[in-house]
Every structure is written in C-alpha cells, then in structure tokens.
Design a protein around this nucleic acid. Structure first.
Lengths: 168, 168
DNA sequence: CGGAAATCATCTACCGTCAAACAATCTCTC
DNA sequence: GAGAGATTGTTTGACGGTAGATGATTTCCG
C-alpha cells in the first residue's frame, strides 16, 4: 500500500486542478473494486430509466408483475415475489396499486385459501402492451454506452452471477 | 406479446411442478431486461460481501473513504462524496464514525474555512491495511461464478456504463 | 469595496426496502 | 381425526439513501 504524502496538500478551491489525480480517483477505484463498479453502474442505469419513465402510469415493479402474469398465467403473490426477486411485503403494495387501477384482480386460489390468484384484466393486458412498447427505446438509451454485443455479454455475466443457467 | 392462456391455471401448492415454466420465469426475465439482471446481480453481490464482512470493524463506505485518503491525500468531504459517489449527507455520518474511531482527523482547510481537511491517522492507515488484506478473498468469493477474464470484462463494461475512460 | 451567487458541511423530512411478528390456512405425522 | 410445523398474505418498525433547506464562508463582478 504505497501511501500518498501524509502532509495535507489540499487543492485550493479556486485553482482548477492540481494534477487532476484527485478528480479522477473514481476511475482508479473502479479498477480494483468490481463490486463498486457494478453497484454504481446499476445506480446510473436505474436512475436513467426512472427519468425516462417519469410520466409513465406503471412502476417498474408493476410492469414486471404484469409481464410475468402475461407470460405464465395467474400467480400467487408468493410466486411473483420469488421470480421477480421482490420482497413479499413490497409485493402487497404493488398488487394493491395494480388492483386499484383495475389492471389485475385478486381471486382466491380454489385449493389454497391462504393464497390469492392474481389475474390480469383486459385493461392490464393493454397497459402491459403499452409499457412493453415504451420500454425498448428506454433500455436502448440506458445502455447506449454499450454495443449490442457488449450488452449481451453483460447480460450473460450478470446471469452467471445470479446462478441462472445459460440460455439455450 | 404472445399471451399465456387467460384462464387461471394455478399450480396446486402440494403438487411439485406443473411444467416448471413458472418456477424459472426469472431466467426468462433476465433475457430481455438487462436492467433487472444488472440490478439483481448487484444485490446478490452486495449481500454476499456484507455477509462475509459482518464481523469487520469498517463499513464498506468507511473502507472506501480510508482507501481514497490513502491514495490521494487529505480531502474535503465534498471531494470524497464526488469521487466515491456517496451523498454528502451520508458522508457526514461516515466521517463522524471514522473520527470517533480515531481513524481520521477533521482539520480545517487552511485556505477555505468552509471545508474540512479529512486526514487519516496512523490508526486509520493500519485499519485500511487490515481491510485491504481482508477484501481480496471476499471479492474472489463474491465473483466466484466468473473467470478472471469474465470479471475483467464485467469491470470494463460497467466502466463504460459509468462513462469512465478505459484503463491505460 | 460590497453585494450577489456559489460552495461546504449539516440537519431534517421523506421514500423504498428489509426483518420480524401476526393471523389464517395448509401439510404432515401420529 | 388432532396437533405440530410450515406457508401465504399483511402489518409494523427499523434502516439506508436522497432531496431540500440552512448557516457559514468564499468567489465573482460591478
């Protein structure tokens, strides 16, 4: 650990840059802390997407719920929580909002009266279609710094971290 | 958007798996939502690291502060906040804790009495050395699913997302 | 010089997430 | 059957991060 000079040499606030090393430390940090690079990248991507989706009627989580319901059919909140990696207690409010907006219905599971059967309504299917259509350009913008190949590579590597078997 | 059957076909909770498609939806989701894949990967990596570092005296943020001070010398909290991408108001508590532990000192900047000059103490340098030594195996474990090449690629791609110029 | 605008550190209020506890219900074992 | 233990949905409280306002100070510009 080769230390920098211990004497306090502060950049004088008026003078622009003294070497510039201090101003670019983030670049050095991301070199040997992949966790920090990953975390900060997630933050900027999420922020970019949230900005682009600011006027949207659906939350990202609500969109994901409708998307999963469309893909696999009616689900219990438990199944939604597990697959979408959204906490059960958060899923409650998420489904509440979707139900209030008339996009899903909460029916009782016929064989397990603990669980609900969350089912999309026709309005929900329409809202999902709109959200899906709006999503592609938003993702393209959020990942604009990457080529399509790089974006696919990023997905492949994050899926390995998530222990998801590689795609067919 | 090819829809699944609209009729509510719920998995009976006792029966193990009905097709298994519902149980593996997360894999399908990460295919066309790179943002979700990235976000969830960050969560599992952060959780793994936090678990490994549970007995540690330093927070990740505190470690980063000491690391940057060691690399570039005394800094104002503002500079620390900017480079480490940690909010100013969070940095206050972070430096508070380090100061209470005797790992940094808060001196006044000689030319700008608004700013502090956060300076590491000898104890701080020792704590950083310990933390750095403990970090390597923790990172290796958190990224064990990736080969060294893949890990380097992940860093390269996240750095592009962060708009950091490529390494020399 | 002298006021306007910007900056640094700080505090407070707010939002989203997570862990734990709870009631209702189901499954399993005897 | 009957009771123990697990599961589903929900609520509650704590925690971490973020935005906005504030006081002290500095810089800018006429």
């Amino acid at each position: 650990m080769a230390s920098a000079p211990r004497t306090a040499r502060l950049a004088s606030p008026s003078r622009a840059d003294d070497g510039g090393e201090r101003r670019r430390y983030f670049a050095a940090l991301t070199q040997d802390r992949p966790d920090v690079a990953l975390c900060r990248a997630t933050t900027v991507v999420a922020r970019t997407i949230d900005e682009q989706l600011s006027g949207n009627p659906l939350t990202v989580a609500q969109h994901l719920v409708l998307k999963m319901l469309d893909a696999v059919g009616s689900c219990s909140q438990q199944e939604l929580s597990e697959q979408l990696r959204i906490d059960r207690s958060v899923m409650v409010g998420c489904v509440d909002a979707l139900e209030d907006a008339g996009l899903v219905r909460r029916e009782r599971h016929p064989r397990d009266r603990r669980a609900y059967a969350v089912t999309p309504t026709p309005d929900g299917a329409a809202a999902l279609a709109d959200a899906e259509r709006a999503m592609a350009p938003v993702l393209d913008h959020a990942f604009a710094a990457l080529t399509p190949d790089e974006r696919a590579t990023l997905v492949r590597l994050t899926r390995k971290l998530l222990d998801v078997p590689p795609a067919d």
